[in-house]
Every structure is written in structure tokens, then in C-alpha cells.
Design a protein around this nucleic acid. Structure first.
Lengths: 191, 191
DNA sequence: CTTCAAAGTGACACAAGTGTTACCTTCATT
DNA sequence: AATGAAGGTAACACTTGTGTCACTTTGAAG
């Protein structure tokens, strides 16, 4: 190395994340990012040719982290424990879903690096999905999950719920407990 | 009138809607919209000073329509019928939730018209919320809805579910039926 | 058939984002 | 202490979006 960097890769990624969540893919610019990092715009081009490369690189990092955590689900014995583990994980990283949506918007025909990164993201996504499939399968084998509901929908439902805006500031523990209850047993009484 | 317009207000709004859903608020431009309507960009400035005015105007139109439909919920007797009505309505206008999210991003300090429009949108939003509150209240009075789950969450849950992506193309009727079941009775079996 | 107001156009000046490059700064290595 | 590779800057040329305005086109009303 020759000179100390003014920002670490972690700082860059976390700044990118913030800006992406606030402004969305089309509103994300190198100028915004450079300002946030107190660096000139040109400096960013030392690392990335364009915003697509940067964003996809960051997303791979984020998804890898999520996937690594997710794989620990296998340390949990039985469906109930795994369900709890998954809910906690999802609530700990609530932005992941939103970021995946943004990832879809990135055009892949920018250059080879971006194409490669997008392929990598697709693979990560698919691997995650396969992993979760076996979680669902376990639930159905243990007769804990209703067999006639499509796996797709079960997963979608679980992931979607974390995006419900808690606007009125209901305490987090109550919020999570209620969501678990609705997912598991619904919002209707059993009359 | 002096000359036939090349586009109706409906065409303008529906073009705006498409573009907003594809590109998001920051990616939405007058150039895109003008192209889509086969009109010069300048023509749009005859009607709106900037995109914020246009977007908020469109959103008021969209929300008004939704709200008008929603009010028909009172023609349904009892909670069960109202629940069904609401689910059908939400599935018929699945973009409304996404559009509301976009509306939040619009800065209100552009000019008076935009401030006014945003206030109008807030009022519509609040009115809708109040209306739905009484639906929830009814459900709890009839002891159909679990009393200990916050109204906020119940509403959030119902609205959020329509955003679950049906990526694998499960037939719509099965999809809707399963979602109603999960919302009502959960995805767990009753062992 | 003239009038004129609404509808639409194209060009201008400006602002903001992009990608590149010549150049300066820093600091570990020698 | 000199060197050079990596980090960083600022300016340039270019593209895209914005808001405005003088101008043309259209068509109903007089």
C-alpha cells in the first residue's frame, strides 16, 4: 500500500446502503456518495467504473452476510426452533428485502463486471431460496405447516411481513410477537 | 376550447402511473412522460410547473378512486362480508400501496400547489385510515378479530400481503384463497 | 372568413450527473 | 533521501434533465 485511504470498504458500503434506501437506484449518484464520504467524486472511479458495478458489489457483500447468517439455521433442531431463528434474523436485517427489489432494477448490459455480478447475485438468491425450501419442507414433514399452501407463498409471506411499517411506534417486542402469532395462527379468533 | 388536446387527463395519469412504478420518483422525468404521450416536453408545462405537482395531482386522483371504492364497504353487512370486500378491492388495485410509498418521497417545499396537494393526500390517507379503523373495530366487536393485536398491525398486514410477488405464477384464485387463509388462520396446522 | 384563446413546438440557458485525465500527495520500500 | 505505486483532486467535455419563452397550429365562436 502507498497511502492511507480516506474511507474503508465498509464505510463505502454502508454509505451506499443508506443512499440506496433513501433515493432508490435511479436517485443514487456518485456525487451523493462522494459527498457523504468527504471525498472527491473522481476518487470513487479509482475503484468502480460506474454505479452499477459499485451497487452490485455492495449487494453481493450484503447478501453474502445474510446468507452466512441464514445457514446457521441448520444448527437449530426442529421446525419451531428454525422458525424462530428465521424470524429473528429477518427482523435483524429488515432492509435486505428492499435491497433485493432494487437489485432487480439494475441493467445487466452495462459491462462484463456488472453482468458477472448480477449472475453472482442470482446464484446467491437461488441458493438462499433452496436453503429455505428445505426449511419449509421440514415444516411440512413435521406437519407444522399447512400442506396445501404453496411454499412460494409461505416464504413470501414471512419475508414480506417485516416490511410492514410500524408507524405508530408499537414496542418492538410486542410488534414481533404479534407478527409471529398472525403468521402462525392468523388474526381471526377460533370460533 | 380552442384546439383538440393530443392527450386526455386519463392518458396522462395512466402514463404517469406506469412510469412511476417502473422508475420510481427520482427516475420519473418530464422527458419520459412526454415521449410516452408523443408530445413535446414543453406541452406538459402548460399544465404543470414541475413533476411534483403532476405526480401529487395524479396521486390524489388515484387515491380518491380507491377511497370511493373503499367506502362501498359499508354496504356489506357484518365483518366477514366486509373482510372479503376489502381483500377483493386490495387485489384489484395492487399498486396503491407502492404509490403511497412513492408519495412520501415527494418534497413538499417545492411550491404552494405541491404543499396543498400533499396536505390533501395526507387528509385522504387519514380518512381512509379512519374508515378502516371502524372496520377493525367491527371485527373486534363481533369477536372475529383477536383483540390483543394492534389495529395498526392488522391493517398493515392486510395491505402488505398484496405486495408478495407471485413469481412462480401460482393461479390467482389459489393465490388469493391461500392469502386469505393465512391472514385469517395462519400457516400453522392446529396441533 | 376572421379572430383569438388554447394547444403544441423548438430553442435557449442553466443545472446536475458521467467518465476521463493530468496532476498533486502520501508513505512504505530501498 | 529518493522512488514509485496507490490515493486523491480538479477541471474538461459530454449527456440528460429543467424551466421558460417566442412562435406556430388548430378550430369553435362571432
Amino acid at each position: 500500500m502507498a497511502r492511507e485511504r480516506k474511507f474503508s470498504m465498509n464505510e463505502l458500503f454502508s454509505a451506499a446502503k443508506e443512499l440506496l434506501l433513501i433515493h432508490g437506484y435511479e436517485g443514487f449518484t456518485f456525487s451523493l456518495l462522494a459527498d457523504r464520504l468527504n471525498v472527491s467524486r473522481g476518487a470513487l472511479y479509482k475503484y468502480y467504473e460506474n454505479k452499477e458495478e459499485l451497487i452490485t458489489d455492495y449487494m453481493i457483500d450484503e447478501l453474502n452476510q445474510f446468507f452466512t447468517d441464514l445457514q446457521k439455521i441448520e444448527h437449530c433442531e426442529g421446525f419451531d426452533a428454525q422458525f424462530d431463528f428465521l424470524m429473528n434474523l429477518i427482523f435483524a436485517m429488515p432492509e435486505v428485502q428492499q435491497l433485493i427489489k432494487i437489485a432487480v432494477q439494475i441493467p445487466k448490459n452495462v459491462n462484463d463486471k456488472v453482468r458477472e455480478n448480477k449472475a453472482h447475485l442470482d446464484k446467491l438468491h437461488l441458493d438462499m431460496y433452496k436453503h429455505l425450501q428445505s426449511f419449509i419442507k421440514l415444516g411440512k414433514e413435521e406437519k407444522k405447516l399447512k400442506a396445501h399452501i404453496a411454499n412460494e407463498l409461505i416464504l413470501g409471506f414471512i419475508f414480506q411481513t417485516i416490511a410492514i411499517p410500524n408507524h405508530f411506534g408499537i414496542p418492538h417486542s410486542e410488534w414481533v410477537a404479534s407478527i409471529k402469532e398472525i403468521i402462525g395462527h392468523g388474526m381471526f379468533t377460533n370460533n
